[in-house]
Design a protein around this nucleic acid. Structure first.
Length: 167
DNA sequence: CCCTGATTCGC
DNA sequence: GCGAATCAGG
């Protein structure tokens, strides 16, 4: 099974979607998770999940300690998103018909809103993008690099809570 | 023991 | 470039 352009594109898509290497390998078929991971690395897509691992060294590193691999300069340059989707009004209907875990549909945004332990906890519920668990707005946020301080970015929870009806 | 990704190395 | 083997963490 060779890595055709379509294969690579699908791989990158699934990887960006958040699927695990084994899941991608299973979906695509003909490849193992090792192959997927290897390809992901060669594509330079690595760097997702298991962040608590600054560097990795094999036990046998002593044999080739004289070959210090140059660290990747991490050319991941994220440009400022000026075309950021506008915040959509949360799906809050009269009577409290909010998007709860039980009312979530496949095409509904599954972005958590509020405290999971709180009664007012619900999900965004906006029309999610096809193939994505979140709406345009939250899908955009979900893909933001965690390294950058997103504190300046308004938290959806705060805004949504403010929209809740008083009674 | 299951899962995950990361890295190395022979092909 | 490819991927199994292996490593390391959860």
């Amino acid at each position: 099974m060779a890595w055709t352009d379509e294969r690579v594109d699908l791989l990158k898509k699934l990887w960006a979607e958040g699927l695990s290497a084994s899941q991608i390998a299973s979906k695509m078929g003909g490849v193992t998770r090792n192959a997927v991971i290897g390809k992901v690395h060669r594509l330079g897509l690595s760097g997702r999940a298991t962040p608590a691992k600054p560097q990795r060294g094999r036990v046998n590193e002593g044999t080739r300690a004289a070959t210090p691999r140059s660290f990747a300069p991490a050319p991941k340059t994220f440009e400022a998103d000026d075309n950021e989707p506008e915040f959509l009004e949360p799906l809050v209907l009269d009577g409290g018909d909010m998007a709860t875990v039980s009312t979530l549909n496949k095409n509904m945004c599954k972005w958590p809103v509020g405290d999971p332990t709180s009664e007012e906890f619900h999900f965004c519920g906006q029309s999610a993008q096809t193939g994505k668990p979140y709406c345009a707005y939250h899908a955009h946020m979900a893909f933001q690099p965690s390294n950058t301080s997103r504190k300046d970015r308004p938290r959806p929870q705060q805004r949504i809570l403010a929209h809740r009806k008083a009674g």
